[in-house]
Nucleic acid binder design. Structure first.
Lengths: 360, 360
DNA sequence: GTGAAAGCGCTAACAA
DNA sequence: TTGTTAGCGCTTTCAC
């Protein structure tokens, strides 16, 4: 058929991949992968019949079906997704893009997306934008033809870039909104009010907000919500920053808080909040006796840091799952005959020991 | 060319994806993606020339090259990876499989793999095996034809399944060894000795090991190392469990430790160790005054839990990066003309406040 | 330096 | 129910 190609793939090789723990036999070099033609030949049917057996098992003779599957298993055949995609234009693959896979905040989104994707019988690939709009855009461009749709989480892309992306792929946003695009967002307005009310009820008269990255949409929403709620509650609200929302930004932020003499501080997220608490402890400041600290996200670790952190929990797993479901509902090419319901997910204030009565 | 197909893709739709935050214009329905033929036509050259312009820019007239790129950008053209893969058999994509993406231990591996993949100019997809051998096998089967190789982290697959996988794809293992397969592993023997020596120097005469899942290769290595080192140091060593290595397993494990009256406990990993410490605190047991606790992994959070955890740090980022580099060195189809150096990465004992002098 | 043509593995008409 | 045929978008000889 194509002997040259075959040779190129299965030619002799001197594989020497040995492991310290097991000096025995090296695994034979990768074999040429069985194709639909191989299976067809071995089963004595046409390729299209094999194709049918895999895609529409109902429309094939029972006995033939069984034989094909048997032969396929024997040959270790699995349909080549690339070839499938080429023909149908559909890849049965969804992409989830996050700013940083290692950020525990996104763990929930990933988990939820993973679950919903599996339920829908699709494959999920996760890509890391490395907090970098350029990288994010490149991912969308390069991965675009290879997936049926994107879930863009906390996207840093400007509206027009998102719009362009949505022209070629189905797109659903999480914790980011853009004109005309489907999105799943947390209810930061209510959430911020919950935080403010909590602090007010503890006697705090003002709060400091430690802001995250300037381009962060959710950061903007958080601050807007806090400011509005504070005004309504007759509390002062000041924004510091922006800070990179990392543990390492804690010291700078904490020092600023102390210099300002604040009694209550709300951090852009839990990681920053924990960094702040660590610095406060280093400087001999007791949380919550002297300063109350509140975070956003309720990440892994916020329950066992010291002291355990009061924080606004978002339904991140739900967000991930809903985003995927929406993507699936949008249909193969983004088609939507019915309304795609935009989603605002409720938040929940988890009160732990990092917030307490205001110092008098 | 294929009008029916075109219609199917770009036919009229009533997109109603509206966002609460921005009621304006809906994004137009996804356009048909530009193909190499479109670009060729628009630039007045043959498709093959466009192909060359993208794959071997040197072999094309400078002016032609420029024109093609310009037209391509205008049309928003990006080569379809699926079509490319079909022809070349190479996808320029690597897959990283982890038992649980949301487990912070794997964050380092992911980060390192991400970095090395980017350096090599490839794309990385991350798949979650959900701690489930069947899922893992399915991933390898389904994703197999779509990627150039796999990094399998802490694989739960039996040796023969790994062997089968390696026959069709290049495979590198992380913290798992199997006959004939390339692997990157942490030096648990030395690491375990470091832990035992540390505990011995604090006066502990025995330790309890809280074991992880039975199929965990690294779990077996950890216990083997601890037992050997303990024997050499004249210390007692007992294994409890197996426990699911989660925070939620903490209570059961902690209670067992207390019932046994142990003074030193080494947990399968940090998450379990933190769960144990939390339970101990709940039961009024002071760490490290009454019980010393040591973990494995040095995950995010082990420095700010209470008390900060003494743990064996692995070079997870290095492991991820090395694994990808090895995969790349193995070559497109797993070919390796030179030896693939198996890698044992050093570990480092990070002593924090959870370990202390033995109670007398 | 460029074009024409064949084919990668698979699916989807259309016939039989 | 099954086989035949024609591409999907791209790369790659092989001529020109």
């Amino acid at each position: 058929m194509a002997p040259v190609r075959e040779d190129a793939r299965s030619g002799p090789r001197h594989v020497a991949s040995v492991c310290h723990f097991c000096h025995d036999a090296a695994v034979p070099p990768p074999r040429r992968r069985a194709t639909i033609t191989d299976v067809a030949a071995a089963a004595g049917v046409a390729a299209s019949t094999v194709s049918r057996a895999f895609t529409r098992p109902g429309r094939v003779n029972h006995a033939t079906q069984a034989r094909i599957m048997e032969v396929a298993a024997e040959l270790g055949y699995a349909p080549n997704p690339a070839a499938r995609a080429l023909e149908s234009g559909r890849t049965n693959t969804l992409a989830l893009v996050v700013p940083d896979v290692t950020n525990p905040y996104f763990a929930g989104v990933i988990k939820g997306a993973e679950r919903a994707t599996a339920t829908a019988g699709l494959t999920l690939v996760i890509a890391d934008a490395q907090e970098n709009p350029a990288t994010e855009e490149q991912i969308v461009t390069r991965l675009g033809p290879a997936v049926d749709g994107f879930v863009l989480t906390a996207s840093r892309l400007p509206d027009d870039a998102l719009r362009r992306a949505a022209e070629l792929n189905a797109v659903v946003l999480v914790n980011r909104a853009a004109p005309g695009l489907a999105c799943i967002v947390s209810d930061f307005d209510t959430g911020a009010r919950q935080i403010v009310d909590h602090l007010a009820s503890l006697g705090h008269r003002a709060l400091v907000y430690l802001g995250g990255p300037a381009e962060s949409w959710s950061g903007a929403r958080r601050w807007a919500g806090l400011r509005a709620a504070a005004q309504q509650a007759g509390m002062g609200a000041t924004r510091f920053g922006p800070y990179t929302p990392t543990f390492a930004s804690g010291p700078a932020a904490a020092d600023a808080v102390l210099a300002a003499g604040a009694t209550a501080v709300v951090a852009h997220n839990d990681i920053l909040a924990i960094g702040v608490m660590t610095r406060l402890a280093d400087r001999g400041v007791v949380v919550p006796d002297q300063v109350s600290v509140v975070g956003f996200d309720d990440i892994f670790g916020s329950d066992f840091c010291h002291p355990p952190l009061t924080t606004l929990a978002e339904r991140t797993e739900d967000a991930g799952a809903r985003a995927v479901e929406t993507l699936v509902a949008l249909g193969p090419a983004g088609r939507a005959d019915r309304d795609v319901a935009p989603r605002v997910l409720p938040t929940q204030l988890v009160v732990r020991r990092s917030s307490g009565l205001a110092v008098s």
